[in-house]
């Protein structure tokens, strides 16, 4: 249970960090579209990866959420 709580917190922190860095020049340097990846502009491919990572984190969250111990309980 304690491990799950720790993993869940790590997931939350990772989601917050990913969301925050999206709004920094690391992802959206103003007026810059390079380096490209497969012809895709910089801000688009980096933010695409962030979106995918957020969904992956959500999936991991379903596995480690401490409340999932009660998952069998329906409303």
């Amino acid at each position: 249970m304690e491990k799950k709580r720790l993993y869940w917190r790590i997931c939350c922190i990772a989601a917050i960090i990913l969301s925050i860095i999206t709004f920094t020049p690391l992802v959206i340097p103003q007026g810059v579209s390079t380096p490209e990846l497969g012809g895709v502009p910089y801000s688009l491919w980096t933010s695409f990866i962030i979106t995918v990572l957020l969904v992956v984190l959500t999936y991991i969250g379903t596995r480690v959420h401490p409340g999932m111990q009660n998952e069998e309980e329906d409303l």
């Binding site: 997931c11 989601a15 990913l18 969301s19 999206t22 992802v27 959206i28 801000s43 688009l44 933010s47 695409f48 962030i50 979106t51 995918v52 990572l53 957020l54 969904v55 984190l57 959500t58 969250g61």
Partner: peptide, 15 residues
């Protein structure tokens, strides 16, 4: 950057 406006926001929203 409209991708960030909706898709990144939706990614964070599902979390």
């Amino acid at each position: 950057a409209a991708w960030i406006f909706l898709a990144v926001s939706d990614g964070a929203m599902v979390f």
